[in-house]
Write a protein that binds this DNA or RNA. Structure first.
Lengths: 333, 333
DNA sequence: ACGGTCTAGGAAAGCGCTTACCTAGGGGTT
DNA sequence: AACCCCTAGGTAAGCGCTTTCCTAGACCGT
């Protein structure tokens, strides 16, 4: 492994000069030396050691991203936005998958902290349990205390820079839509119950029901895991248990797609389905999915912009509007 | 920012002792000291500087991954496999998106090299252009020369550890399937032409045609960009230009889904569609997509296993079989 | 020809950590 | 009681780089 010292020796200069030439420092250097050093770099195939660089110029440049799972299209879209902004700013982004496990999330926060990232962006639902939330917050604060910046997407329990989609309002829109179409026997497919996203969307749904003088009973609210297959399994069960249900609200599109699959397996049932997030796949399934749209890529872009911007005095919170996209999967009762 | 020295001072020990305690070194240490140091760590919220650690124990632990685009489901699936294996091995994985630009890929190879990763896994098609391929290979060799390991997924032009899906055979399977169903007017939607994946799949398609004494004319082969929207646009155009076409082979599922969308917009045409990759979405579109299945997650797992395994004497090449999955989007002419 | 002012390049001090090596004291042996 | 050995802990030398500060020579003016 060639080092700066090797290059310098090879070119007959000091490491100081070599470093300056390689990094294009403003200090003027004779052309002859420059040529020799550059030649040495090429010949030795020298690649600077990033760790040594970070250590020497104690200045942070990478940024960290913690998501539940990048291979989930929901997070893939957010990540796309995150990366676009970070890359445009010339930064390396380190992506970590927490797989919705608070402990893993904790571990990654420390890992990113250890790697001296300039900022950490956390996307994905927070945890309802106060103890869990506090534990995470504590590590986040420790990171902030060293000058790191933090931005979160969709976790209102963290007080700091945040981009918050209005999940509650989304739930309300979804519920109102179904109720306005005349559906009264509505079932809900939720995500994991410890997540704030689940909680908020459900809350909006109930608010809509209340407006219509109704209430979705707990028996018709089934928890799944935000995945397509999980959604299909729970939807199948739900369909069997509740013959009178005429509409299902799935709290994300993956589960809505699973629900559509379950429905395909029970051709005798005609049930309206509404999803959440408006992922790209929504328009390609049949029937095309009615969904509450979250501007995922934009969410990512805005969060990264916050994270890379200069630290404000007060935490900046950007609320993001959601929008109902009506397609063919919902119809009047 | 608390450093090891701060912790040591705070606990009244030397940095050596503090380091040993924190890292659980085998060297025995009195319990009293251990307690004091750990208390200091907690109190100062000390997090070790990963860069300094890497530098001091010059031993590589992270691994790098270069894919075209993680938010593309194809790469998301591969990445999932990659991560599973790497994480199980306790390694940080750094994901880089090349967006199919050779220059960016080059840049990332050097960046990962600079970050002293233990291994680099490159997923995604290689480049047909010999000059481009050579340029990349050169940087890869430089990385290998310093003791780094490399594994590639689906680029046969790199001689080293590789996991190679049999794209040519996949093309052959797709072509044979369509021809056996009696389709003769077959059109093809390819990916970007400089990519080896495009080339190989097309080659297999032509081999199948030859077996049936036919040949797919260049006029019926349209290049798109492997995206859903790109596929839809080109498919629409292709449909308009070739009224007699009865089957379309799209060289990946995203474009096949786009083709299905284009077909939905032209209800008078009944055209069979076959995709490639068998992404999760294939079974959820209507008609469910016939596709040539690549075991994407497995591809990732095997590549990472190769990359993390001990360096072999000879390059290890694992060929991966593809499989035709027949669903409802193809039918007899 | 002399002093003064620039300037290009080098010497060396870290950045925060690990670890090989050393030391001092405690305990065992005879 | 003298000796040796072992062990817990400390000292300090790097890991590879950046950057401040310094030096020596070039150049200018008079």
């Amino acid at each position: 492994m060639a080092t700066l010292a090797d290059v310098a020796r090879h070119a007959g200069v000091s490491t100081a000069t070599a470093s300056r030439i390689i990094n294009g420092s403003p200090k003027p250097v004779a052309d002859a030396l420059r040529t020799r050093v550059l030649a040495a770099v090429a010949e030795l195939k020298y690649v600077p050691n990033a760790h040594a660089q970070m250590l020497a110029r104690s200045h942070r440049s990478a940024v960290g991203v913690i998501v539940h799972d990048v291979s989930d299209p929901y997070f893939a879209e957010i990540t796309r936005g995150l990366q676009r902004v970070a890359t445009a700013d010339g930064r390396l982004v380190i992506i970590c998958n927490s797989f919705r496990e608070p402990d893993r999330e904790l571990e990654y926060i420390d890992l990113l902290h250890a790697h001296q990232v300039a900022a950490i962006v956390i996307a994905g639902s927070g945890y309802l349990d106060p103890a869990t939330a506090a534990r995470l917050d504590d590590r986040l604060r420790a990171f902030e205390a060293t000058g790191g910046r933090i931005a979160v997407i969709g976790r209102h329990e963290h007080t700091g820079d945040a981009v918050l989609p209005d999940n509650e309002q989304g739930g309300y829109l979804a519920g109102s839509h179904l109720l306005e179409l005349g559906h009264t026997e509505i079932a809900v497919l939720t995500g994991p119950t410890p997540l704030t996203t689940t909680f908020d969307r459900l809350k909006g749904l109930q608010r809509a029901a209340r407006k219509f003088g109704a209430r979705i009973p707990a028996a018709r609210i089934h928890a799944a895991d935000f995945t397509r297959d999980g959604g299909e399994a729970v939807a199948a069960q739900l369909l069997a248990e509740h013959p009178s249900v005429t509409a299902i609200a799935a709290l994300n599109d993956s589960m809505a797609v699973g629900t559509l699959a379950a429905l395909r397996a029970t051709p005798d049932r005609r049930v309206a389905v509404i999803g959440f997030d408006d992922m790209p796949i929504a328009r390609d399934v049949t029937p095309a999915l009615t969904s509450v749209r979250l501007p995922l890529t934009e969410l990512g872009e805005r969060a990264m912009t916050l994270a890379l911007g200069t630290a404000g005095d007060a935490p900046r919170v950007e609320r993001v509007k959601v929008e109902l996209i009506v397609r063919q999967s919902t119809w009047p009762r």
